[in-house]
């Protein structure tokens, strides 16, 4: 599945959030609102970070909140939450400005999306700069389309 297709307009741009869990919750609720995950999935996304630490912050300024397929994932999809002022996870990669949440119904359906994500993460610096620059979901879609097209 194409990255933008999997995102399907689930983009939220925020100036700031109270704490990391709020940003993760919003990213999960975007997936839940479209029926891609059960509400329990959103709780598991937060619990996972509380129990295992901020490992989802996997590149400078970028985090990928998710839970297990069996935690309530119903479909394959992504959401994008941008926190323009940044949010702190307690990670080497703080402050996080771009959260890309995903749901996958099994352990392999999302491999293609992870490959495309790799192309985005290779430009993590670009992504976080874009967070300061881009003000609307439309602008984000255009931007993502352009960097995904550029990638090998």
């Amino acid at each position: 599945m194409d990255f933008l297709e999997a995102l399907d307009g689930r983009i939220r741009i925020l100036e700031r959030v109270g704490e990391w869990a709020e940003a993760v919750r919003i990213s999960g609720e975007l997936l839940a609102a479209d029926g891609l995950v059960a509400p329990s999935y959103v709780e598991h996304m937060i619990q996972t970070c509380q129990e295992l630490g901020p490992y989802i912050a996997i590149a400078p300024g970028v985090a990928i909140p998710h839970a297990r397929p069996e935690d309530g994932a119903k479909g394959l999809g992504l959401s994008l939450v941008v926190v323009r002022e940044g949010v702190w996870f307690g990670s080497h990669n703080d402050p996080v400005r771009v959260l890309i949440a995903f749901a996958t119904p099994d352990r392999s359906a999302h491999i293609d999306l992870l490959r495309q994500l790799a192309n985005l993460l290779a430009r993590a610096g670009d992504l976080t700069q874009a967070a300061a620059r881009l003000g609307t979901p439309e602008e984000w879609k255009e931007y993502l389309r352009s960097i995904l097209q550029d990638s090998p």
Partner: peptide, 15 residues
């Protein structure tokens, strides 16, 4: 390895 074995671990495996 990652927390759940489904996201970052799979990503790392490919790399």
């Amino acid at each position: 390895a990652c927390g759940l074995g489904t996201g970052t671990a799979l990503y790392l495996k490919m790399t």
